[in-house]
Design a protein around this nucleic acid. Structure first.
Lengths: 137, 137
DNA sequence: CTCCATAGCTATAGCTTCTGGAGCTTTATA
DNA sequence: TATAAAGCTCCAGAAGCTATAGCTATGGAG
C-alpha cells in the first residue's frame, strides 16, 4: 500500500497533480484509510508512471486517457495506439518546424547586439515593421 | 479614427483579444465615441501591429510590455531590448532541442506500425516502461 | 499515553493567453 | 426611420497544473 506521498516520490509527479489526475479521470478514485487518506496499490503506481512518461513525451491528457483505455484490452489490435502516437509525432514535428522559423527570424533581429540606441535598434524596428521579416510566421 | 473592428481587420488580432490587451496594459484605454465605443488613432494601430508581430514571434505579454516601454525612449541605449530578444532566442532554441529529443523517442515508439495487438504493442510498452527509452526527457 | 511534526484532506483561486457567448446598445446604411 | 451589423460589458472555459487556507490523520519519541 502506498500513500499519495509515496506515489509522488516514486514517480516524480507532485501530490496536487496526482489528485488532479484523479479528478480528470486518469486515475480511479483509490481506496481510503479510516482517516480518509488515499491508499494505492502497485497497479496504480504503474499507471501513474505510464501517465508521467506520456506527459513527458508531451501527450495530452485526452490522448493519455485513450491510451490507458486501450492498454486495458491487450487482445485488441494496436492500430489506434499507433495512430495516437503517430499523430503526436507529427504535431511535434510541426512545432519544431515552426520554432526553427522563429529561431531564424530572431537571429536576424538580434544581430544589432545592443550597442546603440532604441531609436535605431533593429529589434524594435523589426517588431514594428513586419515587412523587414524574411519569411512568414 | 478606427473602430475596434477596423483594428482587428488590419492587424489580424481578434476583437476580444484587443480588449484583453487593453486590460493587460499593452494598449492604453482609447478614446470613446458618444455611444461609448472605442475609437483608435493610427499610433494605436501601429502599436497593435507591433504586439501582434511580437506575439507571433512567441514573446510573452510581459516581454512585450517591456519592449513597448523601451520603444517610447528612442534616445536610450538598446541593450535591454537586445537582451530580451536574445533571451527569447535562447528559450526558442531550448524548446527546439527538447522537441527534437521527443521526436526521436516518438520515432522509436511508433516503429511498431500498429499491425499487432495491444498486448505486445511497442507504443504501450514503451510508455509503461521508461527504461526502454534511449535518452532522458 | 500524549505531544508534535509531517503528511494528508477539501475547496477554491490563480496562472497564461486568449476565445466565445449572452444580453444589450450604438452606428451605419438604405 | 427601420434594420442589420458592429460594438459594449461581464462572465465562463480551455489546459495542465500550482498554491493557499484551514483543517485532520498518522507515526514515532519520550
Amino acid at each position: 500500500m502506498y500513500t499519495i506521498g509515496d506515489l509522488a516520490r516514486r514517480t516524480g509527479v507532485k501530490i496536487p497533480t496526482i489528485r488532479y489526475y484523479e479528478q480528470m479521470g486518469l486515475l480511479a478514485a483509490p481506496e481510503r484509510s479510516e482517516g480518509n487518506q488515499r491508499r494505492y496499490e502497485k497497479r496504480e503506481l504503474e499507471r501513474l508512471a505510464f501517465i508521467r512518461h506520456a506527459r513527458d513525451l508531451g501527450l495530452s491528457i485526452d490522448a493519455i486517457r485513450d491510451l490507458l483505455a486501450l492498454s486495458e484490452h491487450p487482445e485488441r489490435p494496436c492500430g489506434e495506439a499507433d495512430r495516437i502516437a503517430t499523430e503526436h509525432l507529427a504535431s511535434v514535428r510541426e512545432k519544431i518546424a515552426r520554432l526553427k522559423k522563429l529561431e531564424q527570424e530572431l537571429e536576424r533581429i538580434v544581430a544589432c547586439h545592443g550597442n546603440h540606441t532604441i531609436g535605431d535598434c533593429y529589434v524594435i524596428r523589426a517588431l514594428a515593421d513586419h515587412s523587414l521579416c524574411e519569411s512568414e510566421h
